[in-house]
Design a protein around this nucleic acid. Structure first.
Lengths: 178, 178
DNA sequence: ATAATACATGTACATATTGACATATATGGT
DNA sequence: ACCATATATGTCAATATGTACATGTATTAT
């Protein structure tokens, strides 16, 4: 547990930054596998500071606006690397409301089913298109010891996942005869 | 929101059953896309009863052991069908601790990375094998208006998802040069 | 007989997460 | 000048979820 803790430590291990910047990272780089609102991030930063995992310095944006730039400590880095190297069983399959609906979709009329699958397919195709465009940021696949390798691997996985989801949705429409 | 509510109503719409049996359903049929412990189910059943969505009759197992058999009401069925037919945007990508680790895997030694990917691949292959065996319960693919269609569609999706995950893990080992 | 496991229902506490509330400065465009 | 949007940090309340606590009966194998 305490996954948010390690997500934050991992990001601060890459680069010192403010809570606001961390927030932005969760909405961009980590978006395909983790999320956190600022209302969860700020309290966690406070806790991590108290625990000695991170420290901060106050910087000024513009004339007076203060921001706290957080930096990981040696203790924090140690804890993060211990967590990262830990052997852990695969987590239970995550909750998925759409699959829950599909499970009960026998109760829908053919028209309703059609609309459900079509709507989702369109949204997943859009996401897939966005992810493929994201892939362009890598001119060439990063080497196995490049700092970008993790980013590249999860993006590859996200694209494969979306491709399969789209295939599945098409198959559903086919099997459900609509 | 209130997804647990609709998962329960959906199951009770198929068949009246006790909290214990509902619990078992979450661990078997719904396992690939939803989960709930009995400590969450029993309070929700109480709430749904108060809301008039379900009713129960007390039955006796053996000589004295009481169990409550819950049945969906007309109001409950109506609410469930309304929810099922609702147009809803795709949910944000679910949290995935393993992908979080992969994102940071540049910090690991090649040996540690190898062990991480291999361990996960073995577990996903086992799950895939189990799911394929589950598929045998369908002698022939259920027709589009069969009550089993939802079950069949989600199982198909679960197998496709696991297959893709396994492919991705192999690709990761390849790309990370281990 | 007895022991292990399944059946059966509940509560209590801790943690995780989201949405709303609350406030204030900085910057870029019109 | 003014407005919209982005930057910046925090709290609060509600909901969701999981682990542990708590209790008792039924069935099956030894």
């Amino acid at each position: 547990m305490r996954e948010l803790k390690y997500a934050i430590l991992g990001l601060l291990n890459q680069k010192s930054m403010s809570g606001y910047e961390l927030s932005a990272e969760f909405e961009s780089a980590l978006n395909e596998f983790w999320s956190a609102k600022h209302s969860q991030i700020y309290p966690e930063l406070k806790k991590l500071t108290q625990e000695g995992m991170i420290t901060y310095e106050v910087a000024i944006s513009g004339h007076v606006l203060q921001k706290k730039i957080y930096t990981i400590t040696d203790a924090g880095r140690e804890d993060f690397l211990r967590w990262l190297a830990e052997d852990q069983p695969i987590s239970p399959t995550p909750k998925d409301v759409f699959r829950l609906r599909v499970f009960f979709s026998g109760e829908l009329t053919p028209q309703q089913r059609r609309s459900m699958f079509e709507g989702h397919l369109a949204q997943h195709l859009a996401r897939l298109s966005y992810l493929r465009q994201q892939m362009n940021k890598f001119d060439t696949p990063p080497g196995s010891s490049s700092p970008e390798i993790g980013d590249y691997l999860v993006l590859t996985g996200a694209i494969m996942r979306e491709e399969t989801t789209c295939e599945w949705l098409k198959k559903c429409m086919d099997l459900a005869g609509i």
